[in-house]
């Protein structure tokens, strides 16, 4: 077994893409970053809890959604248990967006895209937008007058964007399929990517107060 050094001896298979991928992961995402046991002092604030609460709500959304998908879209109209599970689904979605927006406010005001975290911020924005579309397809998949009302009113707006040619809000099968399969998988994968990105670079440092000379103490000045 070789001892660690700055220039380790090449091992068999190092020229392969799997070897390159392994070295990249070891360099960019060591386990001490992925599963840290300690956090910087500035993480001791409730503002940093919003993202975790949003993920917790998302777990409830997906869990209740799996149950609803198994019993079908009409189940909650005819079953008390179905109505209860549907309510969990609905209210966990409300909590998800409530805390996603709070998370967004917190990260916006601390300019969390600093120090090479731009893609982390952008992935968060994409999660928010995809989440909105997921919520919308859920509303039009309820199989009730509410869903019909929303779909009929939305179709002209969607058609005006040109997306109506492939995104037909009056097509229940398309909306339901997108809602229960395509978008939940997309959101989940993006959230996993978002968390991994946060762990790769750590939590962004707070913005330093203004220096006496008028220049802001850039956090990037600190190694």
């Amino acid at each position: 077994m070789s001892t660690p050094s700055s220039h380790p001896a090449p091992e068999p298979g190092d020229a392969t893409w799997t070897g390159a991928a392994r070295r990249l992961l070891e360099r960019r995402l060591p386990l001490t970053h992925l599963l840290p046991s300690r956090q910087p002092f500035f993480v001791g604030s409730w503002v940093y809890v919003f993202g975790v609460v949003a993920i917790t709500a998302l777990i409830w959304v997906i869990g209740s959604g799996i149950v609803l998908a198994f019993f079908g879209p009409g189940w909650f109209h005819v079953s008390g248990v179905g109505r209860f599970v549907n309510s969990i689904h609905f209210w966990s979605v409300q909590l998800f967006f409530f805390f996603v927006v709070l998370h967004l406010w917190g990260q916006y005001f601390m300019a969390s895209w600093r120090d090479g975290r731009a893609t982390t911020w952008l992935v968060g924005v994409v999660i928010f937008v995809v989440g909105l579309v997921t919520g919308f397809t859920g509303y039009v998949s309820q199989q009730n007058l509410d869903a019909q009302w929303i779909a009929i009113n939305a179709k002209d707006g969607i058609n005006a964007t040109g997306a109506g040619s492939f995104f037909n809000v009056l097509d229940f099968g398309q909306m339901y399929g997108i809602h229960v399969m395509l978008l939940p998988i997309t959101v989940t994968m993006l959230v996993v990517l978002h968390v991994v990105q946060v762990r790769m670079r750590g939590v962004v440092k707070p913005i330093e107060p203004q220096a006496p000379g008028g220049r802001r103490n850039a956090p990037t000045d600190v190694a």
Binding site: T32, H33, S37, R38, Q39, P40, V43, G202, K205, V222
Partner: peptide
């Protein structure tokens, strides 16, 4: 788990 000094997250 919260550091009390100004240690940084290892980059």
């Amino acid at each position: 788990g919260i550091e009390t000094d100004h240690d940084e997250h290892p980059e």
